[in-house]
Design a protein around this nucleic acid. Structure first.
Lengths: 189, 189
DNA sequence: GACAAAGTAGGACAGTCGTCCTACATCATG
DNA sequence: CATGATGTAGGACGACTGTCCTACTTTGTC
């Protein structure tokens, strides 16, 4: 995109580097090398590293919102849309094997750092939770929609963590299949 | 323990601090403050920070092995023993809510750091995987014992990650109950 | 073309990190 | 008591961190 500002480039690079190497392990120098600007000049665009983190979280929130909108357009039924969520594990399989889930690993890291942005990062989970909850409600599971949402979220988090540790494609495929069957089993006929 | 050496004290303190604040975010000064020794003196006991990490991983391996031996003594049936594994989520609920799973968060961090000790840390997962696999085999599920082991491991990892993010006791209880029901459902009658 | 505004470069800064070194204390054994 | 081994204290080191500052270049507007 030629219309992208330097600020956008910084946020994009930080987004990727925070995912690949973690927030703390990513330095200004690392980002500067990617964006090709001088290290000291970040402070024209951001007052602190934490402000970059805020921007990255907001970008991720926006990205995920857009993704969900796509799912709503493409998936006619709630099952289809929930299926789209499950399929992330396959679509992003390679990245997840290497770096884990972008959301889960970020919230874990910030929890250990006792970082101020914890609540904001958790908003990413809340976004998926609320969206899934809505889909399960539309599916007819009004009574336990949130439970089901949390259950599915937990399942996919667990698969991401183990896929990252074991680098196992077959495992991901197996678990995705089981989640599909589970989805069928909770869908009223 | 009065019989504990300084080295043991260092490893214990590092074990706890690595869990609470992460490996990278824990400095020699942090450990020194807990153990009450001078910072520069670590190198009499360890040649590098990575060597402390090795020692911590080995300690965790030994601790978990001991835990499993206890489970084998206390649990008469394979179901009982697998149940003991599931119950970690309740027994260690408070710590998990604060800091996540000690194993999952460590392997995630080391993956992002691209650290040499990744393989060793993954040994912790392999330990549980093999143990669970054995229990499911004893349960009579010889054909898919490893699949079931990985599935249960993933489930507990997911619960730990979300419990850490959402600080939700009720969620843990719900998921543990579901895992119990799942365990019954895979147990041949 | 003048000039303020927007953006950038590059280095200074104080602090912290892991590492290493040397001097000192403790202690068992002769 | 003497002596070597074991362990400890405390600071020096170079590298790197996030932050901040000043000088410079580019850009848009009158």
């Amino acid at each position: 995109m030629s219309s992208m500002t330097t600020r956008d480039h910084i946020v994009d690079a930080a987004d990727l580097l925070f995912y690949q190497h973690g927030f703390e392990h990513t330095s200004f120098s690392d980002i500067a090398d990617v964006v090709n600007i001088s290290r000291g000049n970040f402070y024209y665009h951001f007052k602190s590293k934490d402000e970059i983190l805020d921007a990255v979280i907001n970008k991720r929130l926006a990205d995920r919102r857009m993704m969900m909108e796509q799912w709503e357009i493409q998936g006619k039924t709630p099952q289809d849309r929930i299926q789209s969520f499950i399929n992330i594990l396959v679509v992003n399989g390679d990245k997840i094997k290497r770096y884990g889930c972008p959301i889960g690993t970020l919230t874990s890291e910030l929890a250990k750092l006792n970082h101020n942005a914890q609540a904001e990062a958790n908003g990413l989970f809340m976004l998926f939770r609320a969206w899934l909850c809505r889909q399960f409600t539309l599916l007819g599971r009004t009574a336990d929609a949130d439970e089901l949402a949390m259950h599915l979220l937990a399942r996919s988090q667990g698969v991401a963590t183990l896929a990252n540790a074991f680098q196992d494609d077959k495992f991901i495929a197996q678990e995705v299949k089981m989640m599909c069957n589970w989805l069928k089993s909770v869908t009223p006929s």
